[in-house]
Simulated assay, not measured.
Amino acid sequence: MNLLFKLVTLSAIFSYINGAIFEASVTDLQLLVDEKENITIIVKNVATSGTLNLTRSAKNIVELTPNQIPIPKSSNGSYPVLVEAVGAGHVIINGQFDGDDKVLLRVTVLKNIGLDVFSVVIGWIYFIAWSVSFYPQIYTNYKRKSVIGLNFDFLYLNIVGFTLYGVFNLGLYFSEDIKEEYFDRHPGGLNPVQVNDIVFAVHAAIVCAFTITQTFIYERAEQRVSTTARLILGFFAAVIIISVILSACKVLEWLDFLYICSYVKLTITLIKYVPQAYMNYQRKSTVGWSIGNILLDFTGGMLSMLQMIVNAYNYDDWVSIFSDLTKFGLGLFSVAFDILFIVQHYVLYTHSRFIAIEGSDIPDP
């Protein structure tokens, strides 16, 4: 098999079952549909005879030949196993021996390697577009030496949302316990969080914090965070605190806590643009609100949704979209509001390029 289609770790997984050691020659395997690969199960220090049963966490993805291996007493040997990919998806191969069960092999099956590369490229393009999208607003604030026209409710909702999104991504990507909980619920699925998701979320939270510092430096007139936004943020804080307590008390699993964080983020995405859109409507102007931010955000949102659809098709894993509503919803609702802002800027308020503040006109860069 081509090395491009196979990921082999430097060290194998060792499973200790009643003193015996079971080692898979390949611990992570990536195949195309209808492709076959021979692996070897190495057995050491078996005290009693028995049968090693190879089980799959999901059916209709791979076939194993044989799926049962007789193991004689005091055996040290190697046993070949043919892995045949019959359908796209993700599956874990376990070895069961004498009542115990250990992970031996993880297999990922995809339909097209080109689509996999295309997905990676899309992921990094939308990561760049979304990451860069924060900077036009920062530049606009710096150039004007003013944050008038930039809604503060939006800023504070944004930083809370991205902080929680970062918690969700970091937990689901790095915590082995949480990943185990996820795959228990979705045995044939793939982890929906990728490295670029983590980098984006952490970077977004940091840049949002920097933008908020600009509101304390530059001219702001009478603008402040509204009472409504304060009450909403307080409610979200209570939800998160209660969720942490319930998870620590094992009433909820930590995966459920992460989902709650992601749902709060999704809710913030639904509402965070409303104050800014309404402010633009009241002022009949988009001056102070960077259109560069919107255009880049629109690009990132479209590509984010496209990547999830490509991955869902390539791995036959549509459940990943519905199990990660935050990522898909983030793209969908961002695009919807971006279209509204584009209409406001280029159609409704195109005549307004300057806003009068204390008798002087401040241009929008």
Rank of each mutant, 00 (worst) to 15 (best):
L115M: 14
V132A: 15
F200P: 01
T108G: 14
S131N: 11
E219Q: 15
S146R: 12
K145G: 02
L155W: 01
E219C: 07
F127L: 15
S131G: 09
A201F: 00
S146W: 07
N169F: 02
N196D: 06
L231G: 12
I212E: 05
I113A: 11
Q214L: 15
T227K: 14
G189D: 12
A229W: 07
A229H: 03
E176I: 03
V147D: 00
P136A: 10
W130K: 08
A201C: 03
I138R: 01
Q137E: 01
F168E: 02
S133H: 10
V147M: 05
F200I: 06
E176R: 07
V160S: 14
V120N: 10
N196K: 02
I122V: 14
F210V: 15
P136L: 10
T215Y: 01
A209N: 01
N191V: 14
T163W: 02
E219H: 15
G171I: 03
S133A: 04
Y139N: 13
I198M: 06
G166N: 03
P192M: 07
F134A: 02
R224L: 09
S226W: 07
Y182T: 00
T108W: 13
Y218M: 12
I206S: 04
T215I: 05
A209M: 12
F152I: 04
Y135E: 08
V160K: 10
G114L: 01
A229D: 11
Y182S: 03
S226L: 04
G189M: 12
N158A: 13
G161K: 05
W124C: 00
L110A: 08
Y139C: 11
R230F: 08
V207C: 06
G188D: 02
Y182F: 11
N158D: 14
T211A: 15
R185L: 13
H186T: 01
L155Y: 05
K143W: 09
V160T: 15
A204R: 01
A229M: 11
E222R: 12
V207A: 04
N169I: 11
T108C: 11
P136R: 13
T108Q: 13
N141K: 01
L155V: 13
I122Q: 05
V199W: 05
E176M: 05
N141L: 08
G123R: 05
H203R: 07
G188M: 01
D197R: 02
T163M: 07
Y173L: 08
T228A: 03
V202A: 04
A229T: 15
S175H: 06
I113F: 10
S175K: 03
T213C: 09
S131Y: 11
T228P: 01
I122P: 03
G188A: 08
S133E: 06
D153K: 06
F183T: 00
A205R: 09
N158G: 09
G123M: 10
L170C: 13
K143G: 05
F174Q: 09
D177S: 15
I113K: 00
E219M: 11
